[in-house]
Design a protein around this nucleic acid. Structure first.
Length: 901
RNA sequence: GGGCGACUAGCUCAGUUGGUUAGAGCGCUCCCCUCACACGGGAGAGGUCAAAGGUUCAAGUCCUUUGUCGCCCACCA
């Protein structure tokens, strides 16, 4: 029987086939009525207009690894996909696109514009979902959700109304961050802060009815046009005589009061502050306290407005220049100093944000935050790694009300209607016919939409059908874990916890696992728009998605950032190639199995599926016992690591098992057995080889789904087997653990390595067989070597290996020893570089000497002996003895070498 | 102004609860196209774990200070 397997590993040929298969067969469709504990992850919904970037790739790789692992471990899994309508981002994209066609979106009107965005969404919105399918994510595609779909919009309205009725949503006039480019209010989180070198301008304000003046300092002189007061500290003697008087606002001529207020910092500037309630948060508060008028001197797009008099129509920064020039002309600009201060920047478009008083909708956060803080405090929700807990607490404990209204057209329109007659607001789930207060039909819906993150906050339960008690909601909520980057801890994670607890009475997820941010070699965040990123799809094309997934998993250690370098994916691709070739080794030899009388059907038995070693009841050769012990340890390692979201550790575990243990040692060790004349042994060897390989595929599957699916289907399978994704994930098997076999095999590995090292030192032809000697004082060790003699001869390319217990002489050859365990010798000296050997010995002796001294010192210390656990003391004593013996051997060898041996 | 994180081999990074010669990948040196694999095999070199102090029988691991870099939060005009 021959197996059809291509000689070369070409992921490009394999991956699309399985990606299609998984989607078409709907293999990962969740069934809430199926058995097993629930495991559910809802995707952090990517922007519908976006495409997959490296950050998604990492996020989705982790999610899919967990999902596939849990599915294989008997869980009832749901990985729910979906996208976010991404208000500002999407609107910006379409506005720009229309502008490119010479169309002003405002002239289209709201309705038409919304149509255009929906059209754009239908045309381009599928990209990221298509890419997710392409990279093999095991989602239930039948449950795909979109934040702006009619179903989810209904949930949003419902939540809004409830919060409004509970008094947690209110409409108020307040100072907000205004982006003059996006022309909308922003939340505090959407406003970034950037340290900039600016200036502090000192301006004289004349005092009414006198020749005096008062000097104020400001970083934004153009706002003076909206000044309505000056504040000084009540205890400031410099200004004591001026409090209660009025100043004349330059350029404007308005009379403004000078007021005492202890918020003023006497040390800063001149100790006198100009107050612009409409354009500064502090001033806004001061304005409220002192009942000052608010004068908004700007327009929505960041120009000076009617209230700015002669400056009306100018851009705000142009106006700044002109104001300063005019002040200078009038001799009122007293001083200019350099001043570094933080400037608010729009998260989306990087425009300098204008603080501005405006009427907006807000969500009261304190009452929502309290139970959300408690849920993390009491451990109901675990944040991993734990250092993010503190970050979360800090933000949550200082949380401020959330400005949720946006002056955009793309999003969930606020379900509030203003009455033209009574001026009151009607908030309702469905459009009302008339005002709830006066019955007037002259009502109009509020033009604003909700912050995108408002609907995202509901995602874990809105996607599962809440508020209906659906089967999905009952089965999969709370979800298991949220996998995300720390960037959106506040934007999204914190808000989901608050909303989840508030509306469902339950936490939205048990764990929050924060993964690193992917950066490039220069340490910058990978970003396509900045040209600092890579296109993961393109990289997948070149190396394979499996290699990409494995690379990311292997690099994703909790904590810091992850720097993307291409050499890591090269090594992961090489690993995939190694697996492919190990498979080929099996497949091309299946013929021999058949010829030897073993049947492939027999190999596909359920016992083999479970990875049970053939002849497990004591009939295991050393290498088999060792391999199964290693396999069990690797399985344990992978399971435990994934349990704690240590992807890096899990990947490493499976990598080393497969490459080092399985390929480099086991396969090489048993090769003759496979082809050997002894039918029973050959059959056993094949069965074990098959079982371990098949188990390894299952162990690898969550990391490299395509490759493992491909190879698994090439193995003999039960009829009707659909996918390795439904096979059992390998668990640690205590009965396979075999410390004795591990110790013995490691010993033999050391012997082989020492012999090979000598061959290299003697520059022997790799094929040239030589005679060697082995010596150990332990009879058990000599017996072990004796039992494994043929293998040792083959692996070290020896003609013979004598076994003894006497010290081996250096003269006339080369000797190696591994600690006090054994000595090996090759009796040749032609190729020997005596000087190099002497250097090596001296170095090793020096190292041992240091080590011995350190250990002696510790053992001579009585406090150590009394305080340290006995096992540590005993262990130290034993190693010290070994080191001393080894040093002595090396010294003897060294002196023999010096004597011209 | 607060807070957090990083600093370990030439490079990119691991190192769970402190415990006996600190690991990986890439790169480097030497040997090999040996019948699964040169995207490979074999052997090896390379680190006083940023610095200083401290706690401890014992510190890469805990504490303090310093330095360098990065990030987050913050309404000093």
């Amino acid at each position: 029987m021959t197996r059809e397997i291509a000689k070369a590993y070409e992921p490009q040929k394999i991956e699309p086939r399985w990606a299609d298969y998984w989607v078409k067969e709907e293999l990962f469709r969740a069934d809430p009525s199926a058995p097993g504990p629930a495991f559910c992850i809802v995707i952090p919904p990517p922007n519908v207009t976006g495409s997959l970037h490296i950050g998604h790739m990492l996020d989705h790789t982790e999610i899919d690894i967990l999902t596939r692992w849990r599915r294989m471990s008997g869980y009832n899994t749901l990985y729910l996909p979906g996208t976010d309508h991404a208000g500002i981002s999407t609107q910006r994209v379409v506005v720009r696109q229309l502008a490119d066609q010479g169309i002003d979106y405002r002239k289209l009107g709201r309705e038409e514009f919304e149509k255009r965005v929906w059209k754009w969404k239908e045309e381009s919105g599928g990209t990221i979902i298509r890419q997710m399918k392409q990279i093999g994510e095991s989602c239930d595609w039948s449950r795909e959700r979109f934040t702006l779909s009619p179903e989810l919009s209904r949930v949003v309205r419902d939540v809004f109304v409830r919060l409004y009725e509970e008094g947690l949503i209110y409409r108020a006039h307040y100072l907000v961050n205004w982006c003059p480019n996006c022309m909308t209010a922003l939340s505090d989180l959407e406003t970034l802060h950037e340290e900039r070198q600016g200036h502090l301008w000192y301006i004289r304000y004349p005092i009414l009815g006198s020749n005096e003046h008062i000097v104020v300092a400001t970083t934004r002189p153009e706002t003076m046009l909206g000044d309505t007061a000056i504040l000084v500290h009540p205890a400031d003697e410099r200004y004591a005589g001026l409090v209660g008087k009025k100043a004349i606002l330059p350029l404007v001529g308005r009379e403004i009061p000078i007021i005492a207020d202890d918020v003023v910092d006497r040390e800063f500037g001149t100790g006198a502050v100009k107050v612009t309630p409409a354009h500064d948060p502090n001033d806004f508060e001061a304005g409220r306290r002192h009942d000052l008028p608010e004068i908004d001197v700007m327009t929505d797009d960041g120009r000076m407005g009617a209230a700015a008099g002669g400056y009306a129509g100018m851009d705000r920064f142009e106006a700044r220049k002109r104001v300063l020039e005019d002040l200078k002309k009038q001799g009122l600009l007293e001083n200019i100093t350099n001043h570094v201060h933080a400037v608010g920047i729009c998260e989306r478009c990087k425009t300098v944000v204008e603080p501005r008083a405006s009427t907006q909708w807000f969500c009261r956060m304190k009452p929502l935050a309290e139970p959300a803080i408690a849920a993390v405090e009491n451990g109901e929700i675990q944040i991993i790694p734990a250092n993010w807990r503190e970050v979360y607490f800090h933000w949550m404990r200082n949380i401020r009300d959330w400005c949720i209204s946006r002056q955009l057209w793309w999003g969930h329109r606020i379900p509030a209607w203003h009455c033209a007659d009574c001026g009151k607001i009607t908030v309702a789930r469905e459009a009302p016919a008339k005002c709830a207060h006066c019955g007037s039909a002259k009502i109009e819906q509020d033009p604003d939409v909700l912050d995108t993150w408002f609907s995202s906050a509901l995602w874990p339960f809105s996607t599962l059908g809440w508020p209906a008690e659906t089967a999905d909601f009952k089965r999969y909520y709370p979800t298991s874990v949220l996998i995300t980057a720390h960037e959106i801890l506040f934007f999204w994670v914190a808000r989901m916890i608050m909303m989840g607890i508030h509306f469902t009475g339950k936490i939205p997820f048990h764990d929050v696992s924060i993964h690193p941010l992917v950066r490039n070699a220069e340490g910058q965040k990978m970003s396509k728009s900045k040209g600092t990123g890579i296109d993961p799809i393109d990289v997948n094309q070149r190396y394979g998605t499996d290699a990409m997934r494995f690379t990311l998993a292997a690099m994703a250690a909790p904590g810091g950032d992850l720097i993307w370098t291409e050499d890591r994916i090269v090594s992961a691709r090489n690993f995939a190639n190694k697996i492919w070739n190990a498979a080929r080794f099996l497949f091309v030899n299946f013929e021999k199995v058949a010829a030897g009388g073993a049947s492939l059907d027999e190999l596909a038995t359920p016992e083999m599926r479970a990875g049970a070693p053939y002849g497990a009841n004591g009939d295991l050769a050393l290498a088999d016992a060792w391999l199964f012990s290693r396999l069990s340890a690797a399985s344990k390692g992978v399971n435990e690591a994934l349990e704690e979201y240590r992807f890096q550790q899990a990947a490493q575990s499976v990598y080393h098992f497969f490459w080092d243990d399985f390929c480099d040692w086991y396969i090489e060790w048993i090769k003759p057995d496979l082809a050997g004349p002894d039918g029973t042994r050959a059959k056993t060897a094949w069965k074990n080889l098959f079982a371990v390989f098949e188990t390894a595929l299952r162990l690898l599957h969550p990391f490299m789904p395509f490759l493992t699916e491909e190879l698994w289907h090439q193995l003999p399978q039960r009829a009707g087997a659909r996918s390795i994704a439904f096979e059992r994930f390998p668990a640690a098997k205590a009965e396979w653990g075999n410390a004795e076999a591990e110790e013995q095999f490691a010993y033999l590995q050391d012997v082989v390595t020492a012999l090979r090292d000598m061959r290299a030192g003697l520059k022997l032809d790799p094929k040239k067989k030589v005679a060697a000697q082995f010596s150990s004082e332990g009879k058990a060790w000599r017996d072990l070597v004796q039992r494994n003699l043929p293998t040792l001869l083959r692996l070290a390319v020896l003609s013979e290996l004598s076994i003894g217990s006497e010290r081996l002489p250096t003269a006339g050859g080369l000797v190696r020893s591994v600690l006090a365990k054994f000595e090996v010798r090759i009796a040749l000296s032609e190729g020997l570089d005596i000087a190099a050997e002497a250097r090596k010995l001296r170095k090793e002796i020096e190292r041992l000497e240091k080590d011995i001294a350190a250990k002696r010192q510790r053992l001579d210390d009585d406090t150590f002996r009394t305080k340290a656990p006995e096992s540590i003391v005993k262990g130290l004593e034993a190693t010290l003895a070994e080191r001393v013996l080894e040093r002595e051997k090396l010294m003897t060898r060294f002196s023999q070498l010096e004597q011209g041996g």
